[in-house]
Design a protein around this nucleic acid. Structure first.
Lengths: 252, 252
DNA sequence: ATCCTGACACTGGTCAGACCAGTTTTTCCT
DNA sequence: AGGAAAAACTGGTCTGACCAGTGTCAGGAT
């Protein structure tokens, strides 16, 4: 393994083990180079690696600092590189929602057509949980609800594609919930949309289900766009990954 | 912002947009340095940043390569379990076409809305090639045509998702062409569908474009279903992978 | 005494050129 | 033609220089 990678690895370990606290300043590049007996270029490459990973931040003229991580100490290193792409490119959020709008609509359509009684049971369960859940853990309930519908589409490819987008979906759902929930009217509208979607799917109305799903995603997207205009922070930290027992998973 | 970060950003974007496909080799550090007019150290720092977030992989003596990651870090390629599913269960072909129908429709819709003159030029070129090509190499021309439209949607997520389905898409397109082309009436219909799609997209009619695209995919899907009933072999070997000169490459 | 100002000593950012170490291609001798 | 040496790639590392922000602190003007 390259030296720069060994060093980035060591530094990361040091930080994660608590040797270096968040916001704490990291020794200067020249100091590190001298102390570790390597050239400064190597140190810079190692730091850039950590930077790319979001572990540290670097400020010209000041130095490098351990990035302050989210409260809750979820340092579970995300498995999806795309996450990072995301953070840097907010526009991608809307690109994603654009695709989601379509796929969720299709999933709802197919779910309404194909859902078995077992599927409907799962969807109902998720829907109830969503209604009863406090807004805080709402993001996950929200996601579970949508997931149940997607799986009811009985299209493995659709499930797979959307599953690939899981992390990002979680993030957008999270973002939407985090930002939209505080607003009572928003929340009410969203709840109503969920109800419409639920009704359409469980009562077997494909067209209505599709409309409800696309409208829902569209609404969330538009709402976030508005929020952004107001200057609010839209992008949020991802929800810590969970791996719920996925029944469809076995089909893949 | 530092130059190295601008560069890593640009490369990232390039990859996101599908300009650089997974497993594809990135120009050598010295080439990039020369082409971008910066020192090699900068290039290395940028690459280390991308490396840190798992976007690329670097092999000593060989070069740097786009990590085979797909939206959500799940690869939907030959190594994917999906592919195995495929072999044993032709039904997946129709699941795939179901999703494609939707996404191609959306892509066509967006392309009709957003295509720049350059995009239209590319689409036109691909379309002409498609018309002039003999049925044998038609599969690739067909794919290129659809790809040009997808890229004109200017939605990186859409591009990337469809790009990760590339192998499977090629397979289906190939299957369709191989099976449908021999039948004169079929071929004529398909040509007419392509023409409709082309006209709608280049003349900026989103609704018509979407209809044309979904109808096309639907037609192909139905036609194959019919063929299957007749006992013909539908599934074919995938087209040998090629790495066509991607126009985005020049943006480096 | 207080407030500015400017020199200086930090910090990271960039560059040039060199050499080492793997990998691939080319060349040329057998 | 076959195979081994040589050359031409690739990334990995080092050195030393200079530029560009930031902070400090002494000294002069008020």
């Amino acid at each position: 393994m390259a030296i720069s990678q060994e060093i980035s690895y060591r530094l990361e370990r040091l930080i994660l083990d608590g040797g270096l606290a968040p916001e704490q300043k990291i020794p200067s590049e020249r100091q590190l180079a001298a102390r570790l007996g390597v050239s400064r270029a190597i140190i810079r490459e190692a730091l850039h690696e950590l930077q790319g990973r979001g572990v540290i931040e670097t400020r010209h003229g000041k130095g490098s600092f351990v990035a302050s991580m989210v409260p809750g100490s979820n340092r579970i290193d995300d498995q999806s590189p795309l996450m990072h792409l995301f953070e840097g490119h907010p526009r991608t959020l809307y690109d994603l929602l654009e695709v989601r709008e379509q796929l969720e609509g299709q999933a709802a359509f197919l779910a309404a057509q194909r859902a078995t009684s077992l599927d409907r049971h799962r969807i109902t369960k998720a829907f109830r949980a969503l209604e009863e859940t406090d807004p805080l853990s709402n993001a996950r309930a929200d996601h579970s609800f949508h997931l149940a519908i997607v799986e009811a589409s009985h299209n493995p490819v659709l499930v797979h594609v959307l599953n690939s987008l899981k992390n990002m979906m979680l993030m957008t759902v999270q973002a939407s919930v985090a930002n939209l929930n505080p607003r009572q009217e928003m929340r009410k509208k969203i709840v109503r949309q969920h109800r419409q979607l639920y009704d359409a799917v469980t009562s077997g109305k494909p067209g209505a289900a599709q409309k409800a799903a696309t409208a829902h995603v569209r609404f969330v997207s538009d709402a976030m766009r508005d929020l952004e205009k107001e200057g609010s922070e839209v992008i949020r930290m991802p929800v810590p990954p969970e791996s719920p027992a996925r029944h469809s998973q076995t089909r893949l």
